[in-house]
């Protein structure tokens, strides 16, 4: 069974389902209608071809014929993530991380369509659970996220404060070196004193013996 067709089918299903969940996506799709975007990801053995109409159809490019469509991108998965920052595109092309042929607008419009999807997940959930449960679940979720963020912010602030305060009262390296030198001198002096005491002790024990003899 051709695995490529299974993958393209899954991508197509997910994409169209997401697009259906945002009623505003229709206008974005309209701009792309009739266009074709071919994407060759280095990690995939076959290119994917996105055809736009009132939906997105995903085809698999056949090895014996090259389909480049209105826009063709060849890149790796790592580069795909970098594409979010459009100011990087020129640098990526110069570094040969990205091959771009055709109308860049098609790729940009598709990227915009996906990144600007606004899906009301609470509304979606309410279709299965009812409004009350969906609202409570999302309110709880939001509160949890807010609390977690607040805790994280507090922790970061505490750490930052501590680091700044510690830095101010912490001994500079030269003082630490001086302190270490002093400790060494003290240790030497203590050793000397100990040796002196041992010698005196030995002398005091040998003298009475001589007197008695």
């Amino acid at each position: 069974m051709p695995a490529a067709q299974l993958v393209s089918s899954a991508i197509e299903r997910v994409l169209n389902h997401l697009l259906k969940l945002d009623s505003d996506s229709a206008s974005g799709l309209k701009k792309l209608a009739g266009k074709q975007l071919s994407v060759a990801v280095h990690e995939l053995p076959w290119p994917l071809i996105f055809n736009f109409s009132d939906r997105v159809d995903v085809l698999v490019g056949m090895p014996d014929e090259e389909v480049k469509g209105d826009c063709h991108l060849a890149l790796s998965i790592a580069t795909l993530q970098k594409l979010k920052d459009t100011s990087q595109i020129t640098r990526l092309i110069q570094n040969n991380d990205l091959v771009l042929e055709g109308d860049l607008k098609v790729a940009q419009q598709f990227s915009q369509l996906i990144s600007e999807l606004e899906i009301d997940w609470e509304e979606q959930l309410s279709q299965y659970t009812g409004d009350l449960v969906a609202h409570k679940a999302f309110a709880f979720g939001k509160k949890l996220v807010q609390n977690t963020q607040a805790q994280a912010n507090r922790l970061v602030a505490t750490l930052a404060d501590a680091a700044i305060e510690e830095k101010r009262i912490a001994a500079p390296p030269i003082l630490v070196v001086d302190f270490c030198d002093q400790v060494n001198e003290l240790r030497s002096a203590t050793d000397r004193l100990e040796a002196k005491l041992n010698r005196l002790e030995r002398q005091s024990t040998t003298k009475p013996n001589k007197q008695s003899s």
């Binding site: 051709p2 393209s8 056949m62 389909v67």
Partner: peptide, 13 residues
């Protein structure tokens, strides 16, 4: 059969 038909469409150009 859906996969077979998808493959046909992929080969159609």
């Amino acid at each position: 059969h859906r996969i077979w038909k998808r493959f046909t469409i992929d080969c159609s150009g």
